[in-house]
Simulated scan of single mutants.
Amino acid sequence: MGLDHVRLAMPAGMEGAARGFYEGLLGLAEVPKPLNLAGRGGCWFERGEARIHLGIDPAFSPARKAHPALLVDDLSRFLLRLEAAGVPIMQDAPLAGCERCYVSDPFGNRIELMQCTG
């Protein structure tokens, strides 16, 4: 039927870094976690249909291959903002009408950014 959200792990106590990256740089808004989950730490972000939930994992290991792919409307402009913030960009070959690249969140999780023209 559809996808509700993607969950990524993060280390404990790093919510500020998550907010700086996902909200400040990627432009996703933080949304409140349900009260029954709020005490577990982590943060939830969304924009349109893109929903990323970051949860605390005591045995944290970054997702370096598995990743969410976020659609953007102006990849070049988006990358300029990320580069200005010191975020390394990993280019990749286009896919069927989509320019794309990868970045890592502050915890090493892989994030794909895509702009599709058709």
Results as ranks from 00 to 15, higher is better:
Arg81Met: 03
Asn36Tyr: 01
Arg51Gly: 00
Val87Pro: 03
Thr117Tyr: 14
Arg19Cys: 11
Leu25Gly: 00
Ile89Phe: 06
Gly118Ile: 00
Phe60Thr: 15
Ala50Ser: 09
Phe78Leu: 06
Leu54Arg: 11
Ala84Ile: 02
Pro94His: 11
Asp4Val: 15
Gly42Pro: 07
Asp4Asn: 10
Ser61Cys: 08
Ser104Met: 10
Ile52Ala: 14
Ala17Trp: 02
Leu3Asn: 04
Pro62Gly: 06
Glu99Ala: 14
Leu26Trp: 01
Gln115Cys: 06
Phe60Ser: 09
His53Ser: 04
Cys43Gln: 06
Asp74His: 12
Leu70Cys: 03
Ala85Cys: 05
Arg7Glu: 12
Ala84Asp: 11
Met90Thr: 07
Tyr22Val: 12
Ile52Gly: 14
Phe60Asn: 09
Ile89Trp: 02
Arg40Trp: 01
Pro68Thr: 10
Ala18Trp: 01
Pro32Tyr: 03
Pro34Cys: 04
Ala63Arg: 13
Tyr102Met: 09
Arg100Phe: 10
Leu8Ser: 04
Gly108Asn: 08
Glu49Lys: 15
Glu30Val: 00
Asp73Phe: 02
Gly13Ile: 06
His53Gly: 12
Val6Asn: 02
Tyr22Cys: 11
Ser104Ala: 14
Gly55Val: 15
Arg19Pro: 02
Val72Thr: 08
Gly16Ser: 08
Lys65Asn: 13
Ala9Asp: 00
Gly20Thr: 05
Glu46Met: 10
Gly39Tyr: 05
Val31Asn: 13
Leu79Phe: 04
Pro32Val: 07
Pro34Met: 04
Lys33Arg: 15
Leu54Gly: 10
Asp74Arg: 13
Arg7Ile: 12
Gly48Ile: 13
Gln115Glu: 13
Ile89Pro: 01
Val6Ile: 14
Cys98Met: 12
Leu3Ser: 00
Pro62Ile: 13
Asp4His: 08
Glu83Leu: 02
Leu113Cys: 09
Arg110Gln: 10
Gly16Trp: 00
Leu79Pro: 00
Pro68Met: 10
Arg7Met: 15
Ala18Thr: 01
Gly86Lys: 02
Arg110Ser: 07
Leu8Thr: 01
Thr117Phe: 14
Gly24Trp: 01
Pro68His: 07
Arg110Glu: 10
Arg77Met: 03
Ala96Ile: 08
Cys98Gln: 11
Arg19Lys: 07
Met1His: 12
Glu15Thr: 10
Leu28Ser: 15
Glu99Lys: 15
Tyr102Leu: 06
Leu95His: 05
Met114Glu: 08
Ala96Thr: 08
Leu70Gly: 04
Phe78Gln: 06
Asp92Pro: 00
Pro32Ser: 08
Ala69Tyr: 07
Ile111Phe: 03
Ala59Met: 13
Ala69Trp: 10
Ala12His: 00
Arg110Phe: 09
Trp44Gln: 08
Gly86Phe: 05
Arg47Val: 06
Leu70Ile: 15
Thr117Met: 09
Val6Phe: 14
Ile56Arg: 13
Ala85Phe: 01
Gly41Lys: 15
Cys116Tyr: 07
Asn36Gln: 06
Pro88Ala: 11
Gly27Met: 01
Arg64Met: 14
Leu3Cys: 02
Gly24Val: 03
Ala66Lys: 04
Gly42Leu: 00
Ile111Asp: 10
Met90Asn: 02
Leu25Trp: 00
Glu49Tyr: 10
